[in-house]
Design a protein around this nucleic acid. Structure first.
Lengths: 201, 201
DNA sequence: TCTAGGCACTGACAAATGTCATGGCCGGAT
DNA sequence: ATCCGGCCATGACATTTGTCAGTGCCTAGA
């Protein structure tokens, strides 16, 4: 019997995944949480074999939760589930110690198998996504550029970003210009889009 | 026995919802599709009582599919499911003839009830979302402003938008300026954000 | 019929943006 | 010890953006 911890912020999806996994005779969902912050506590209490973590969650996201879980209970295997197949997500998930990475548009029948394979100590990675991850590579953005670009992602003006990050306005424009160049974009808005699609923010 | 048609582009979620509904003795999923374009065909073939449609789908979205379904098989009740509780979505869904509107973070246990209530001829609407919909009101943007703003949402420059929509660059800037004013934003990027959050695009 | 409002355009102006050259500071690699 | 790269900053420049005033066309409602 493989014991599973389920983390997804959307209650409906969480419950549905639970129902899906409950159909398998050898799987058992022992805990469900709706936030990344609750993962470690729930794992300590219910001692699952596998943790199924969504990336998109308020507060601590699935990848951060995976890293935290690894620090406390390294024997728990982590399988990351996500809506968006961003190359950067896969890279960061594996670096955080995840054993598997599944996108939400894989067939439902394969989820149980993925759980079993992860439990058996194997790696489970979407091959198409792995290829994307290789071509996209790591983020070309420096830490500061990433920070500035993220601050720009809500349409803030350069002056507003400068105030928020305690920088000069010219410096902000320089970082943005550099980010625009590295992403191959023409405007900051396009740079934000490209960086987001690649999971660099 | 209530017969259900399920439409969601994410196979994993679709399968999971199917498993969830299959646990109810009086519900039966008779068809599953992964695109809005397939909804009408599948409905004609399987004659469901209730159609459970996700809004976010490639090709024809859930709301358009609801309208199309209503034109062909008006006796089929439509229950819209969505990740994002955008006020504009609710309004458009109801105008398209949907009987219910459920957000994906409602508890899993309530989904079956929502299906039953919709089947019984009742309306099912998230109360919090309904309130939002009232305050947000209809989109203040004119058709042209909406079009221009949508074209700007990928970070395109004014010149690029003008070329795409066969407008003068000055006209594009005027429409954007007007949209910025109506949304209460300070920049076009912020206007895009606000319009998206309200479901106006 | 008149009128209001959406749509399109022009021209002009201030502000914001993107780029470039330049320089100083620091930490890690050679 | 030196060099390189990231980081912060300045100042200057051309371009883009956001705003405003004014014009005209067209359609739907009073």
């Amino acid at each position: 019997m493989i014991k599973i911890l389920l983390a997804d912020d959307q209650a409906l999806v969480r419950g549905a995944l639970s129902a899906l996994l409950a159909m398998e005779p050898d799987l058992e969902v022992v805990a469900e949480v709706g936030s990344g912050d609750l993962v470690v506590d729930a794992a300590l209490e219910h001692r699952p074999d596998v943790a199924l973590l969504d990336v998109e969650m308020p507060g601590m996201d699935g990848i951060a939760a995976a890293a935290a879980l690894r620090g406390v209970l390294p024997e728990v295997k982590v399988l990351i589930v996500t809506t968006f197949g961003r190359p950067g997500f896969l890279r960061r998930a594996l670096q955080a110690g995840a054993s598997g990475f599944v996108v939400k548009d894989t067939p439902a029948a394969e989820l149980a198998d993925a759980v079993r394979r992860v439990h058996a100590g194997l790696r489970v990675v979407d091959p198409a996504l792995a290829a994307d991850s290789l071509v996209a590579g790591e983020s070309p953005l420096s830490p500061r550029e990433t920070e500035v670009l993220r601050a720009a992602s809500d349409g803030s003006t350069a002056a507003a970003i400068a105030a928020k990050l305690f920088l000069s306005e010219g410096t902000v424009r320089n970082h943005l210009s550099s980010a625009i160049g590295k992403t191959g974009a023409a405007t900051r808005a396009e740079a934000v889009l490209i960086a987001t699609e690649n999971g660099w923010l």
